[in-house]
Every structure is written in structure tokens, then in C-alpha cells.
Design a protein around this nucleic acid. Structure first.
Lengths: 238, 238
DNA sequence: GTCTATAGAGCGATAGAC
DNA sequence: GTCTATCGCTCTATAGAC
């Protein structure tokens, strides 16, 4: 699947963050018209990403946010409750979104090789569709309160376990060469995170997300092929 | 080489940060006796690592630092100049230290397989010896001023290029299976960083640094072996 | 060489006009 | 639904006693 096909199929994009946040926090917001609320939430989120991408969320002031978003300080607080509340809202909205898409992705296949490819490509495509959110979520997780920090950690562990389960099953079925599944899943996640943590580097080098996905898949293949011999590229494809 | 041997050979440890900082900034500090300065710098650095490891450097206040280090606010400023100056000093001290050790490591071998192993193990051992500094440096790099940010980026690029050069040479000599050296070096660095960014996770799982090193080396081997067949483990060892 | 006390700036958040 | 004006607080950094 190409990135373009992924976008078309899932419809994931920055606007969905505002929609998710509006659904989750509608009651606490002063605005009553959905259209107004979505417009302003999008502005606020965009401004948060811009500023905290440069100097971090902790160093961002509400005055910075007011200037960048175009809303006054007063109006800001009709949407966000507090600075910490804003962080929590944004993290939760994205986590809900990303979780759904990724769970669905693996469910579509039963062959270990196919599952492995799906989980790699969908994780990368998801982070390509919401690059600012993924970077933000990664860098600012430790500023969350205890409750939210636990939720973020759990989501992280869940996605690693998904990958580890695929590897274990493949090994058990004799389709994958034996491997420490937990460890390979952990470094696999690190390589997936690399894509959005260093997004700018790959943009400069003109590496497309499909190139990166193909490279990771090939790396996994060379480790996991039962015979450890490189045969024709697609003799295990779906 | 085991981690214990590395420590013995290089003598790297947290105290060397204070020594390096003292050498670099002696003139700007009020204290004149080396022993006093080293003791206080060590306390300050340790406190910075503790606090900013929990909530980040930007969220750390100088009052926090005063309480955690045991020095008064006034005494703090006899060593650090400003909060931003403290960040710069700490980053520069560690970078100087880490750079030296890693450059020396690769110089000790000419065989591509041996060089690859050396660069992986030494990078991991170095970050194991100064775990708090590596984590701090990774997470707080974007709070640096423009000058220092460039220096940090250059150091990062240099270590990636070192790895890429080894890969390219190995491919050119026919010792490694052809590969996109830049891309493998980039994801390789990501896996090395994973070790200190998620240090706690591996401690909980009782994965030792030697285990992690062996796993990464094996992953590289399975991708780079010319025949792509897994033969006896040591038929390409030094 | 280290302390206490405090100046001066900038912060998050709110009240109330429109 | 959005604004301006401002409160009360905490921050970094310094002055000067010891």
C-alpha cells in the first residue's frame, strides 16, 4: 500500500485532531457552534505544534500561543481550561486517533509476513499524516500528569507488544528464524520513531516514507528469513 | 570487549564531566580551589540530571536546583553565570568527552567487521558510562542557543558519518552485502540512541549493555553478510 | 566561598466590557 | 464568542552581609 492510498482509505489528517478534541471536551468549552470551535481548535493546535516544536511546550508561554494562534489570551481560555489541560487534551486526542488506525491495520491479515509489513507501513504512514502530533507526543510525554503519563506509556507498550506478538507467532510457526522477539520489537519501535523524531533530516535527504518503509521491511526480512538466504524478493509476499 | 574492560581502559565516569567543565570555564568561576569547584560542580550537574530527567530543563527552576544540589541560589551563580549558560556548559563538557573516546575507538582497527563492532560497542558503553548526560543531551538539545545547537548537530552528523563510512568501505571491498549506507547508518544511530533514551525499560527487563550490543551486531551481520547465509558465528571475527 | 533578602520582569489565569 | 486590562504569583539574577 502506498502512502497516498493510506490517506485516501483512512482520511487521517490534522483536522481530525480538532474534531476528536471537540468530541471529548465539548462540554467544557464556551463555544457552542461546532464550526467555530473546530476552526479555533485547529488554530490553537497548529500554534502549539509550531512553538513547542521550536522551544518545547514548557518554554511556550500562553502569550506566545495567543500571538501565534491569533486568539486573545481570554479566548484561549474559553477552549483550553489551563496550559496543562491543553497538553492533556492534545495528547489524548492524538492517542485515540492513532490507536484506532493501528489496531485495525493488523487485523486485516493472518500471515506473519503480511502482518509485519502492515504494522510497519501503517505506523510510518500514520506518523507521516500527523508528523507534528507524533513529535509533540514523543517529546512532551514527560510533562504530563501521572494519570496521562500512564496512559501514554500503556499505548507505547501496547504497540510494542503488537509487534512482539507477530514476531513470536512467526517464529512459533517456523516462518521466521528464531529471534528475541521483545528485543527486536523494541529496536523496531525505535526505528519507527526515528522517522518522525528526525523528520527534517529525511526530508532534506529526499527519503520518502515509502523508501523508509521498504528499507525497514528489508532489514527485518534479512534477520527473519528462515534460511537466511536472500531469494527472489516476493516469494513470501501476499 | 566487555563493559567492565571499557571502564577500566578509558576511566570514563560522571566525575569527568565536572573536571571538563572546570577546565573549560575556570576563569568565569568565583571559586579558586579546584577541589571545592569540582565538588560543587558535581553536585550541580547531578541535581540538573535528576530534576530535568523528571520534568525537563525548561521546567526546572533555579530554586529547584538550589534545593536539590544543596547550594544556595547565590552560590549557584558563582559557578554557572546563568541558567542558559549552565545548559551550554554541560552540553559542551559531555560532547568533548564523548567525541574523544569514540574517535579513538575506530582508529584501532582496519577490518570493516571489526570497525563496525567497535563503533557499536563503544557508543553503547560510552552512553552506559554517562547515561544521564546522554539522555539530557538528547532531550534538551533544542533549548540550546544557535551556536551550540549547530555544534550539537555537527557532532551527531559526525558520528553518523563515521558509521556510514565503515559501511561504504565494507561494501566497496566486497566484505558487506550492498546496502544504502547512509540509511543503515541513520537507523543504526537510532538503535544506539534507543539504549540511553529508554534506559529504564532495559533495566527493568534485565537486558545488560553487552546483550544489547550483541543483538545489534547480530542484526547488522544478518543484513551485511555477503552470502546472506548464517554460517558459524565467528568465521569473520578478528 | 557561601549565605539571605529582594529587585524587576514575566508568568498563568480571570473579570467584565462589548 | 472575543476582547482588553490586570491580579497575584513565581521566576531569574544580583547585592551585600558574613
Amino acid at each position: 500500500m502506498t502512502y497516498a492510498q493510506f490517506l485516501e482509505q483512512t482520511g487521517v489528517g490534522p483536522d481530525m485532531l480538532a474534531r476528536q478534541a471537540w468530541r471529548d471536551n465539548q462540554a467544557a468549552m464556551k463555544a457552542k457552534k461546532e464550526k467555530t470551535a473546530l476552526k479555533n481548535l485547529s488554530r490553537i493546535f497548529g500554534a502549539v505544534f509550531t512553538i513547542s516544536g521550536q522551544k518545547g511546550f514548557a518554554a511556550m508561554t500562553m502569550r506566545d500561543l495567543s500571538a501565534e494562534s491569533g486568539l486573545s489570551a481570554g479566548a484561549l481560555y474559553d477552549y483550553v481550561g489551563s496550559k496543562e489541560g491543553l497538553l492533556t487534551m492534545l495528547q489524548a486526542a492524538g492517542r485515540g486517533l492513532a490507536g484506532e488506525v493501528l489496531e485495525r491495520a493488523v487485523a486485516g491479515a493472518s500471515d506473519p509476513w503480511e502482518q509485519l509489513k502492515l504494522v510497519i507501513t501503517h505506523h510510518l504512514y500514520m506518523s507521516e499524516a500527523l508528523p507534528q502530533w507524533f513529535y509533540f507526543s514523543y517529546m512532551e510525554a514527560r510533562h504530563l500528569g501521572d494519570r496521562e503519563k500512564k496512559a501514554a506509556l500503556a499505548a507505547e507498550e501496547r504497540s510494542e507488544s503488537t509487534l512482539a506478538a507477530i514476531l513470536e507467532q512467526g517464529v512459533a510457526q517456523g516462518r521466521f528464524y528464531p529471534v528475541d522477539a521483545r528485543l527486536l520489537a523494541a529496536v523496531g519501535k525505535a526505528m519507527l520513531q526515528e522517522w518522525y523524531v528526525k523528520r527534517g533530516k529525511y526530508a532534506r535527504r529526499r527519503v520518502a516514507v515509502e523508501d523508509y518503509a521498504a528499507f525497514l521491511i528489508e532489514l527485518f526480512e534479512s534477520r527473519l528469513r528462515p534460511a537466511r538466504i536472500m531469494e527472489r524478493k516476493d516469494d513470501h509476499a501476499a
